[in-house]
Write a protein that binds this DNA or RNA. Structure first.
Lengths: 129, 129, 129, 129
DNA sequence: TTTT
DNA sequence: TTTT
């Protein structure tokens, strides 16, 4: 019915870019997202969350993101079921990104932010009321 | 850079449906969203938030939503500037809905939920990794 | 850094309520969240997402939610690692709910919505600017 | 019922820090949030969104944020009504921040991210199922 | 200009 | 009353 997730974190590795048989680009990477509080042992914990992104944005991610870079993801949570090597059914969570934003400055002498448009292009007519 | 808002509330009136000169449908309505806590006077407060939705979803809202109905909106916050009747510049906030969900059962003998697809149709190829 | 997820779906079973050794209530349930689009075979898919909620809200969920009821969850995504029965390390995703809203009318003759306050209580002083 | 907004943008000015009569800190600032697409004139538009944040986080914002800095805000949208200088009732939108994240590196030779914990501290007991 |  |  409604499924919306927003994450900010750092890439654990460079993105992996693949193409489907029909030539559509798809990129995958993992985001390390620190929890805001410390646990009972006084240590900060981190969730490692798999991200999948399609099309032009996948190629942009492969070009502009790399290990350690800060990124924001806006998408939805998918629970994918797959057959394990043990013949068992397993589930894996991944975030299907609708939008990815690049939050790390391009280089150390630059405070700018590499940005990426969404692929969805709303028409911005005047509203008649 | 990133602008995402999710609301659940009740319509204060029936939606208004208009068409732009180029024939594009646009609907507007106000959502009454109760705050989760009481204020110092012990009363529950409410935010009245204007929603704008375009295209096929606008027509669906006009058909399926009405005063008092419960709805969820997923979209972005816009601050629109306009010239007041006093010649002054004013600002108004409104939510541009990307998705609207109808949460009120169709009728009293039904617990189902009227649902509306998004207009954006992701392709769901197999992920090659 | 930032981890926010909002879901609307139906419970696949009644919530399970437990207590930790130190007497803290915790409830678990699974939400069936339909995807907004159909897949290539023309069928609607569903994500089954595990929810965990603590404290007073856990007890409210156990009292007011049951199989098939519609609920909204606002929380964060956790990836928990555990030792499988096969001695292997596995990961499971779950949503730690900060807020749960009950969206199903109490009974068929009622269009009202059972609501639950958040546990977090902001003070609502006047803003001095 | 549910009111959640997540924004990433840049401060248009330094934050303003005030204290209520009862000594509670409150900070206000405006976030410039670029829209992801260009309008019909081919220009990128921006929403200027007022943020309010209370308590310890208000003081952290005053200390670590300044004009031009990148920040993420997670909170709720409030529509506040006030008496205009013309005796008229007006409405203003503002975001009550629950969490603010500082996304600009501390200085040019540092890619780190200044971070701020939430004030809300979940207990992280083991989940008994 | 406000809904249950 | 606007940021990069």
């Amino acid at each position: 019915m409604l499924n919306r997730i927003i994450l900010i974190g750092r890439l654990t590795k460079d993105p992996e870019l693949r193409y489907t048989p029909n030539g559509k680009a798809v990129a995958g990477f993992t985001l390390a997202v620190d929890r805001p509080y410390k646990n009972q042992q006084g240590e900060r914990e981190t969730d490692f969350i798999n991200i999948v992104v399609w099309g032009k944005q996948a190629e942009n991610c492969a070009n502009y993101l790399s290990k350690g870079k800060l990124a924001a993801v806006d998408g939805s949570l998918r629970i994918r079921s797959f057959e394990g090597q043990d013949g068992q059914r397993h589930w894996v969570a991944e975030v299907l990104a609708e939008t990815v934003r690049f939050l790390s400055p391009k280089d150390k002498n630059d405070t700018g932010v590499e940005e990426m448009g969404t692929l969805i292009d709303f028409t911005d007519d005047d509203i008649p009321f």
